[in-house]
Design a protein around this nucleic acid. Sequence first.
DNA 1: GTCTATAGACTGATAGAC
DNA 2: GTCTATCAGTCTATAGAC
Lengths: 220, 220
Amino acid sequence: MSTDTTRSAILTAAERLYAERGFGDVTLRDIVAAAGVNLAAVNYHFGSKDELIAELFVTRSIATNRERFNELKAAESAGGGRAPIEAVLRALIGPTLRGCLGQDSERSDAARFMIRAAIETIPPIRKIKNREIDHLRKFAAAMRRSLPGKPDAEIYWGLHFALAMAQQTVRDSERLLRLSEGICDLDDVDGVIDRVVAVASLALKTGTTGTGEAAVSRRR
Amino acid sequence: MSTDTTRSAILTAAERLYAERGFGDVTLRDIVAAAGVNLAAVNYHFGSKDELIAELFVTRSIATNRERFNELKAAESAGGGRAPIEAVLRALIGPTLRGCLGQDSERSDAARFMIRAAIETIPPIRKIKNREIDHLRKFAAAMRRSLPGKPDAEIYWGLHFALAMAQQTVRDSERLLRLSEGICDLDDVDGVIDRVVAVASLALKTGTTGTGEAAVSRRR
DNA sequence: GTCTATAGACTGATAGAC
DNA sequence: GTCTATCAGTCTATAGAC
């Protein structure tokens, strides 16, 4: 029990401090001071600073991935094993955007921690993201069921672009806000999700193989 | 002259080492050893490690931004002051993608440095990126000329999504390659540019205000 | 088993001699 | 401008107290 409170105190303090000040500005000594525990406790419970960060990130990632997967399964079973492409894309990007955008996320340390993790790419987190591919494969498979006959390359590019738009919106929300001088409303999370889903599904349905107007205008 | 060779030696060595090993694994002592100069020379010539990195990044950024702007002006004067939206988007994302993707970039330290800068977001580089907004405003203005009557919010979202797809493709090329098992060809730089331009211009022409099928299917 | 205290090796930055 | 010497801060790792 004593061990668990120490462990939890470190996790809670670390998540809050990283959320507030970013990874670069927070030392282990800051964390143990905030948690009211000793410096060596970090090494004892987590092995290293990187493994502490990894545990924080893995916990939140698993939650998001489960949410994504539940939404996907719900959409597919509602459609008898096949969901419209819009629903698949919504299941892919909805949980991340709802977690990181909007008013509620202002208060949650977990949400702000995940935004930091999206912005400040540090080695322990990058390693975990690289193991995410198996999870994405399930969405590629669902997209194939939604769009039978669509070439695999198109599926992967569509998945990639959908994730790109969602992640960049989380990562660079400040740039978009300042560029648009507040015209683009990032607090309207459902509206943002709609936009990303609309663009990605439009691209997937139309096809962007280089036969479109862009390629033609390039060849002129 | 003697001062300039020391300064240049530091810049060259730093760019190569950061390109090869990333920002986290390279110390000032590594850099001065590779450059054959004294440790204190870095602080004398640049003030700090961060300012050295900033100078490297600013130099390359200015080159890219000039390339973007020249392409934009060429496209607009060819069309009598107004370019097709595809050409504007191509001027925006083409220089970055050509610089960071493809075969040629394998050899250039500058290209690999910029890829690192896109992946490992560190404070000195983030600060510079935040000052890039004035540059982007010129592209928003050109897009408005291409699509008269289009609401400003649509313009900004289209610009944001185009940049998102381009930057994420540079940043996460490895994930897309592994996910698609090589089916998505990232060495075909013009093909990638075509795809991003096609998706972004499609989104801008169609409109994604939440009246599309995505929003409708959400409201069901 | 759990934690404290401390050791030893790094880092970036700087004062001051030349 | 360049260099030596050194600072203060961080990290991992561990001996030994409880």
